[in-house]
């Protein structure tokens, strides 16, 4: 397994390289530059600034400079936040998104699986219909509307939880719920349909026939197989949740890194965009490896060396 892990990590390196290249090139197609101001700078000052950030070099030269920096662990200076390095900014903001995202991830996966399993076990009942209606409703509300509703009700009217900012564990509840709602609803549906699918398979009948209790059948055989579908969906979701969301960070005034995917692009802060994107891509690669390991753990037919 350790060998598999390192092999896959190595395979991730060319992907990271391509991600960096693609983002770098795409960014240069954007109209405008990082030092466009409402009042245009005098040309000689602009030239000095550009020389300071090596923007006067050709694009390939800049790219090579950037890559060699990254290899030494230096993600370059931010153009917008003068005097701060991208690594600085990311080490400040990424842990916040990471905490919030892991909380949301736990809520979404445990809540979603629990709801889906309950609905599937009571298939066709009022409870099943109610839960599924709830999950469709969860998928039908834009996140900023949901966030606003939570702030208005629990934050301001009832005053149970803080409505914004990031100053302690209780501050994470409302944003985590906002973040988790859509994936939780989706996981609930996914779990329900795959549990229903698995429940009619031969091996489940065999398990029942050999006299296993309903509980053992459900937990050890049905759920384990049904979770395969959920795990597939979790892979990309992990990266999305852990790197933060612009909408949630905006509504709750949380200093995470999700907003940089938006603000850094509008500010043309190329190094910051690239840094954030590389963090995201690393997470995707890691998550995909974990998903493959989980597959092998959940389904004994799948082996890590690729043989089925």
């Amino acid at each position: 397994m350790i060998l598999f892990f390192f092999k896959r990590l190595l395979q991730g390196i060319p992907v990271l390289f391509m991600v960096a290249t693609m983002t770098f090139v795409l960014l240069r197609f954007l109209p405008g530059g990082p030092f466009d101001r409402e009042k245009t700078l005098p040309p000689e000052i602009l030239r000095n600034i550009e020389a300071r950030y090596h923007l006067d070099e050709s694009v390939p030269e800049q790219f090579i400079r950037y890559l060699s920096g990254v290899l030494r662990g230096d993600f370059g200076p931010s153009y917008k936040y003068t005097g701060r390095d991208v690594s600085d900014i990311l080490t400040d903001s990424f842990p916040i998104s990471l905490q919030l995202g892991s909380l949301a991830l736990m809520i979404a996966s445990f809540g979603g699986v629990a709801i889906g399993l309950t609905a599937a076990v009571r298939h066709g009942s009022v409870l099943d219909r109610g839960l599924m209606l709830l999950s469709v409703a969860g998928m039908s509300v834009p996140s900023f509307v949901l966030g606003a509703l939570l702030v208005l009700s629990f934050g301001l009217s009832l005053g149970w939880l803080p409505a914004a900012l990031w100053e302690g564990p209780s501050y994470a509840v409302l944003p985590a719920l906002t973040l988790a709602a859509l994936p939780m609803a989706y996981i609930a549906q996914l779990t329900r349909s795959s549990v229903l699918e698995v429940m009619h398979l031969d091996y489940v009948r065999t398990a029942r026939a050999k006299g296993l209790s309903e509980r053992a059948v459900r937990w050890r055989h049905v759920l384990r197989n049904a979770l395969l579908a959920v795990v597939t969906y979790l892979g990309p979701l992990v990266a999305v949740l852990l790197t933060g969301s612009f909408v949630v960070e905006q509504i709750f005034a949380i200093p995470g890194m999700g907003r940089f995917f938006v603000t850094a692009v509008t500010n043309r802060d190329y190094p910051l965009v690239l840094g954030a994107t590389l963090v995201y891509a690393c997470l995707i690669i890691l998550a995909n490896i974990v998903v493959d390991i989980l597959y092998a753990f959940l389904d004994p037919r799948i082996r890590l060396d690729g043989a089925r």
Partner: peptide, 12 residues
């Protein structure tokens, strides 16, 4: 393409 953040690609 999958390893790029959707929001970023859309904005770009």
């Amino acid at each position: 393409v999958y390893s790029l953040p959707d929001v970023l690609v859309i904005i770009l």
